[in-house]
Design a protein around this nucleic acid. Structure first.
Length: 587
DNA sequence: ATAGGGTTAG
């Protein structure tokens, strides 16, 4: 800026600032600002706002805020720019505070403001506040704006109100790829994977042109369904469509393949990535964790630290600890926890990380030490912690500690029926039938019906779903006969004894066995034995944790029929072959 | 001038 620049006017400043915004030049903006001060030029609202936008773009939020606070007057664009700056950087509550300031100042928000502020509500989990803003929008002329609409439906979806989200989506005067992706991902994020997939297919038929965000959301749903064939089709399609291969999409592919049981494909994508984020590492680590491959988890974690390009986050640490536990390398896990707790990574450990240590100690049979650890830890133990300890007590038949954990669990989560089952088994093992009876009464009174158990299996490009004692499948007769046949055969050949203590209904023994044979994973297994060719392994998915009896049943089937079985339950993969399971019977 | 949807974990 030379001498003749000293009497610069609005237009000159404006041109200069536009140039700076385009080039994202912070220094340029600062020079313009200094020049204005030097020449005592008082910039109008418009130019001040341009400068704020530039600072926000360069991520110097505090400088932008200072300019904003110094403004003698503001218009809706200045407010909105500042609000969206906070929102983009994740300072949602700051953004919401400013929105309140805007309303107080008597400025009328516009469609840009509403779109931004709804995103902030979702980010800050302030759904009730979002609903109030929705009421403002209804009174405003912006209800039919597509940006406002997609932001609003996303807010409802993230609040778990999918019906409201769907109705906002349907009321949109027009649809574009963003609003379509928002509703698909809404279903996927809520675990309504089947609905997400169906909606995707419908919108696709209607001509939706997907982009990489749409595919990432779709892949979340396919991971949940473990729909391997479909997932692979999406992968090929994405490759063929020659979109730039975004990291987010590769991350979803890693997750999809590992949740479909194909770690080889997942690892191939991971290895070939030119750039990785922490999510890429977490996704592949989680894959090995769920498959019980503790060594691979630790190797990868070391590789990550050696490479030193991507910093681990708290999810990484959690996954690594959980990987050591599921992978049966308790000592290494405990060592790593000490390292983490001493702050090498500068990440605060949460109660979940301490929960992993309880798992590690419990799995190693150090149940008393686990109890002591819980007493010493800097958190108030919650249901997950006591549940983990109770699981260890069941596996190692430690009735004394089990009573303590069980008592605390019945207090903290009286509605969880699974806890009663384990506790009853423990008391039954020492013949304390009085206590068993009391617990059953308590359970009848307090426990609620959990999510119904279901299992599914991919065959002939279709997912076949089974519920407990299901009679809806077209081949049900065949399936029931096959379950009986399997049961008789493993009884004879391998001494299968149904674990009747897992059934808590008050019915006779014959009925109990019937209940056990009706479990959804046994139905899916029988269906797989009928329909899938002998050479192929059977892959079953289950929405809850597999029960002890079904686990045992599958092991014996694998032994007697010489068949490889993969079961993905809520917590991990069980790779079952020759009568043994990769989980080491601890899950 | 200012705006919406996305990947891992529990």
């Amino acid at each position: 800026m030379s001498k003749q620049g000293l009497n610069m006017k609005f237009k000159d400043y404006n041109d200069l600032l536009n140039e700076c915004v385009n080039q994202k030049s912070l220094r340029g903006g600062q020079r313009v600002q200094a020049h204005m001060i030097k020449t005592q030029y008082l910039p109008p609202v418009y130019l001040r706002t341009r400068l704020i936008v530039l600072f926000l773009k360069c991520e110097v939020l505090n400088d932008a805020r200072m300019l904003f606070d110094e403004m003698p007057e503001r218009n809706v664009v200045s407010w909105t720019a500042m609000i969206s700056g906070y929102s983009r950087s994740g300072f949602y509550s700051e953004a919401l505070c400013l929105f309140v300031g805007l309303l107080r100042s008597g400025t009328a928000p516009n469609e840009f403001t509403f779109a931004t502020v709804l995103t902030s509500c979702a980010g800050a989990f302030m759904f009730e506040y979002g609903r109030q803003i929705h009421a403002l929008i209804v009174k405003s002329p912006f209800g039919s704006n597509i940006y406002v609409g997609s932001s609003l439906l996303d807010l409802y979806a993230k609040a778990g109100k999918i019906i409201e989200a769907q109705s906002v989506f349907e009321s949109l005067p027009e649809r574009d790829i963003v609003s379509c992706t928002a509703i698909i991902s809404g279903y996927a994020q809520l675990g309504l994977h089947k609905d997400a997939l169906e909606l995707f297919r419908k919108l696709h038929r209607e001509g939706m042109v997907s982009n990489y965000i749409t595919y990432a959301s779709l892949l979340t749903a396919l991971s949940g369904l473990a729909a391997f064939e479909y997932g692979r089709q999406v992968h090929t399609h994405v490759l063929r469509s020659k979109q730039p291969f975004y990291i987010v999409l590769q991350n979803s592919l890693i997750d999809m393949y590992s949740k479909c049981g194909n770690l080889t494909y997942a690892r191939r994508i991971f290895d070939n990535m030119p750039e990785r984020t922490v999510v890429s590492w977490n996704a592949i680590l989680m894959g090995y964790t769920k498959h019980g491959n503790g060594k691979a988890v630790v190797d990868l974690y070391n590789m990550m630290k050696e490479e030193n390009k991507v910093k681990p986050d708290s999810t990484t640490l959690l996954t690594v600890l959980s990987g050591c536990s599921h992978g049966g390398i308790e000592n290494i896990g405990l060592e790593l926890f000490d390292e983490m707790a001493n702050g090498n990574d500068g990440i605060d450990l949460g109660i979940e990380h301490y929960g992993c240590v309880v798992d590690l100690l419990g799995r190693a049979g150090k149940v008393e030490r686990a109890l002591q650890f819980i007493k010493d830890m800097p958190f108030e133990p919650n249901g997950a912690i006591w549940g983990s300890l109770l699981g260890a007590c069941r596996a190692h038949m430690n009735v004394a500690v089990g009573k303590i954990a069980g008592a605390r669990l019945v207090e903290t989560e009286p509605e969880n029926s699974g806890n009663y089952v384990i506790l009853c088994n423990l008391y039954a093992s020492e013949g304390n039938w009085d206590e068993v009876r009391k617990l059953r009464d308590l359970m009848k009174e307090k426990a609620v019906m959990k999510e119904p158990g279901k299992s599914w299996i991919e065959f002939g490009h279709t997912l076949h779903t089974f519920y407990a004692s299901d009679r809806s499948h077209p081949r049900k007769e065949e399936v029931f006969l096959k379950v009986r046949e399997l049961s008789e055969r493993v009884k004879e050949a391998a001494g299968y004894i149904p674990d009747l203590s897992s059934v808590l209904y008050d019915v006779d023994e014959e009925q109990k066995e019937k209940v056990l044979l009706g479990h959804s994973e046994k139905l899916a297994l029988a269906f797989g034995m009928i329909s899938i060719c002998d050479a192929k392994p059977i892959r079953i998915m289950k929405n809850l944790r597999i029960c002890v009896d079904c686990h045992n049943f599958a092991k014996l089937v694998s032994q007697v029929y010489k068949r490889e079985i993969f079961i993905r339950d809520k917590s991990r993969f069980h790779h079952i072959a020759s009568g043994m399971c990769s989980c080491g019977d601890y899950w």
